[in-house]
Structures are given as C-alpha cells and as structure tokens.
C-alpha cells in the first residue's frame, strides 16, 4: 500500500495529475484512494463530487476509529475501484489550526493511516502547494513523493525550496522522509524556450537529487475543459493524445521532428518513463 503525494507550488497541475493517476490505476484494476488535504476543496469540482458527510477532517478527529466513508470516484466507469475523501473548507481550516497547536501534530495523519489501514492498494494524497500543516502531514505520511513542477523559473525555485525542506526534515528532525519517486513536469509547453531550457537541465537535476525524470504532461486546454466538467480527459476526449502522456514513455516527444526537438536528445527524451505506468508497476510488483 504505497502512499504517494505530489508536491510543489500550486498551479503546477498536481490535482490533475493525481486524479488522472487515480483513473489510470483504477482502470488497471488497482483499488485506489484519493485523499484531499487542500482546504480549497478543488476535488469537488474536478471530480464532480456531491456534498458528503465524511470529509478529511473526520480522519484527524480524535473520535475517529477507522470508520472511513469515502465517495466512489467516477463510479459508472471505475465501478468503485477508486474512492475519494474530499475536504470541507471550514472544518479543515479548524483541523489545521488544531494540529498547528499540537506538538508533532503533523505526524497525526501518518499515525492514523498506519493504525487504521485503508484497504486500497494505492493511496494518493492531494496536498496544498504552499507550506503548511497539511502539506507537511502529507509528506510525512507518504512513502513516495512526486516532485510535480512546471517548467517555469518560478516553479523551479519553488522546487529547490521544496527539496531543501525535505532534506531538512531528515537532517534536523531525524524523521523518515518519503523517497522522491521522480520529477514530473506538468503543463509542459515545448514551444516555450524557457520550458525547453529547463527540460534540458532536468536530467542532471534529477540525478543531483537522486531521482529520475518522468515523461512530462503537456499543456492542453482540454485539461482545463474536463476539469471544469468534473471528469478525467479519458472520459472527455478519449482520443486525445495527451491521455498517453501518463502511460506511454516519452509520449510528448514521440511525434516531434528533429527540428522541433531542437537540442533535446530524441533517444533519451523519447524514452522517459511514463508516470502512471511506473506507479502501476510499483503497486503491482513493488
């Protein structure tokens, strides 16, 4: 039961990434739980969820005894293989305040997930981009973290900051930190020279922080459209090539001409591992 969280600054496509990972995992017969830790409750919108009694705050409640009550995700398609636990803005804000006053409050989620094990094979934690109790809770409760970035200078500096925070945890508090599963670039726009510069440097950066670079997820307006409709791209435009950015290695670069690829090495970038495929392999084969 690997627990995975995506991390970095907001607006890098974390929620899109995690909901699509959940969809892909579920269609690959992996029971998946998606837990929202962001008080903005963006899951409600992008997953088209009804209101629910049980929200993330209940998990943090001292009365909680493992009676999880999640909502099925895209039930008509996933047949209950994926479930979500959404947040309620007000109650989660309360929870955050409470946790912040408690020493080791950020370890509460880790403890609860360990004590009351979820039956799912894969657990995805959708944490907020900025630093705070919930993102730290998510980090400490996870086995793996995906470094989800955007190929922009601002997002890159946020990523540096994030890696620093992560290593500091280990260094200063001697707590177990999750393994960085890999770097994935979301909303990748190959037309942007800045983005290409960054893409060029990322293999070295990944090596520097001891991880790998995943195949990027392209920028596409269709992601915004389907977000709005509360469904994954698979259900909105099943023939869209962006779907396979999740499951085919180096998909973004596959059909680019050498001229378009510019300085990027076709062989290397064309074989960058696809993130969803990799995670399914981890769950199935360890």
């Amino acid at each position: 039961m690997p627990v995975i969280t995506a991390f970095c600054s907001s607006g890098t496509g974390k929620t899109t990434l995690l909901t699509h990972l959940a969809y892909y995992a579920a269609t690959n017969n992996i029971s998946t739980a998606l837990i929202e830790l962001d008080n903005r409750n963006s899951l409600k919108r992008c997953c088209g969820l009804p209101n629910s009694e049980f929200t993330t705050s209940n998990i943090f409640d001292s009365a909680f005894k493992g009676n999880y009550d999640f909502l099925p995700l895209w039930e008509s398609h996933l047949k209950g293989k994926a479930e979500v636990c959404q947040t309620n803005r007000e109650s989660l804000l309360e929870t955050e305040k409470l946790l912040a006053t408690k020493p080791l409050g950020i370890l509460k989620l880790k403890k609860v997930l360990k004590k009351y094990k979820l039956p799912h094979q894969l657990i995805l934690l959708d944490a907020p981009g900025q630093e705070g109790v919930m993102s730290e809770s998510a980090l400490l409760a996870s086995d793996y973290v995906i470094l989800s970035i955007e190929a922009t200078p601002k997002a890159m500096m946020d990523a540096v900051r994030f890696v620093q925070i992560l290593f500091n945890y280990e260094e200063e508090y001697d707590v177990a930190i999750p393994e960085i599963l890999g770097i994935v670039v979301g909303r990748y726009n190959h037309e942007s020279s800045k983005a290409r510069d960054i893409m060029e440097q990322l293999p070295d950066i990944a090596e520097e922080i001891g991880t790998i670079l995943f195949s990027p997820i392209r920028h596409s307006n269709e992601f915004l459209n389907c977000y709005d409709l509360g469904i994954p791209l698979h259900l909105y435009r099943s023939g869209h090539n962006a779907i396979h950015d999740f499951d085919i290695d180096g998909n973004v670069f596959k059909d680019m001409s050498d001229k378009k690829l510019r300085s990027l090495d076709r062989k290397f970038y064309g074989s960058l591992p696809a993130i969803a495929k990799t995670i399914v392999q981890i769950v199935k084969h360890g």
Partner: peptide, 22 residues
Amino acid sequence: GRKKVDYLESFSNVTSLKKSKE
C-alpha cells in the same frame, strides 16, 4: 543568445549538505 539560467547549481547547493552526510 538567450540567457540560460543554471538551475542545477541551485539544486546542488541544497544537496551538498545531504551529500556530505551521505
């Protein structure tokens, strides 16, 4: 030419501490 920002250096500064420990 365009000015290229060296992001690797920023990451190296962060990881150097960890590396000495490692």
